[in-house]
């Protein structure tokens, strides 16, 4: 039979372990479990042509205590009438540690020409980073930029503001430095062209048909994303 003193210590130790167990469980629930990342140079989907994400780097499954990296590159890429470029590179890496986790992705494209020169750039850089420490997640797209970007013949600043939208008459519009933040990470598409058609609008003596704008395709150049869950 245990003495009263021993029983008291046993009770105290059990309580202490219970508290430690709860703390560990709470910490585990707050700790990141997976890191994810993706980067690619170009994606084209138009009525006339298509190109899957290329060169595509997707971070393999990264769980607690592990890290990994994926990379891809291409010497050049051409999609008739829609897109052409020189060197394209993609890389993504990430890891999940005991108290921190992170993922980062980079896509670069050189000598870009979109829609037969409607949009050109010497270089495009898409960079994202997501890190998590405890329950705090930080994401940004610092390092994303252009060199010698021109849209419809107009020079655009390298550090164009995020989500800058420019109309492309007869074509649709383009979003430059498109940044999509979400709870677990970020995606940046440096050039996102949305192709549109407009139907209707014709008038008779009785009425005018409403104009209907429809999206018929898109072109994305320089895309990087990273997240931690």
């Amino acid at each position: 039979m245990l003495s009263q003193c021993t029983q008291q210590w046993t009770t105290r130790l059990a309580a202490a372990f219970a508290v430690l167990g709860l703390s560990a469980a709470a910490a585990a629930s707050a700790a990141a479990q997976t890191a994810a990342g993706e980067a690619y140079g170009a994606y084209v989907q138009t009525p006339e042509a298509s190109q899957a994400k290329s060169p595509l780097a997707v971070l393999p499954s990264v769980g607690p205590g592990s890290g990994d990296m994926a990379e891809a590159s291409g010497e050049a890429l051409s999609v008739l009438g829609a897109f052409s470029s020189d060197l394209l590179t993609s890389v993504t890496s990430g890891a999940v540690g005991a108290g921190t986790a992170g993922a980062q992705s980079v896509a670069t494209v050189a000598e870009v020409s979109i829609l037969s020169g409607l949009i050109t750039a010497s270089r495009v850089f898409a960079v994202t980073s997501t890190s998590r420490s405890g329950s705090t997640t930080i994401s940004n797209a610092y390092g994303s930029t252009f060199e010698n970007l021109r849209v419809s013949g107009v020079s655009i600043a390298d550090n164009v503001a995020p989500n800058t939208r420019i109309s492309l008459p007869g074509v649709g519009y383009v979003v430059l430095n498109e940044q999509v933040q979400h709870a677990t990470g970020i995606t940046v598409n440096m050039i996102h062209v949305v192709l549109q058609t407009v139907t209707g609008g014709e008038c008779t003596s009785l009425e005018c048909l409403p104009e209907v704008t429809a999206t018929v395709g898109e072109i994305i150049v320089g895309s990087a994303s990273s997240s931690v869950r």
Binding site: G102, Q104, Y142
Partner: peptide, 10 residues
């Protein structure tokens, strides 16, 4: 110094 991205030690 990094202009963008991150280095993580685990």
């Amino acid at each position: 110094p990094l202009t963008g991205g991150n280095i993580q030690a685990h």
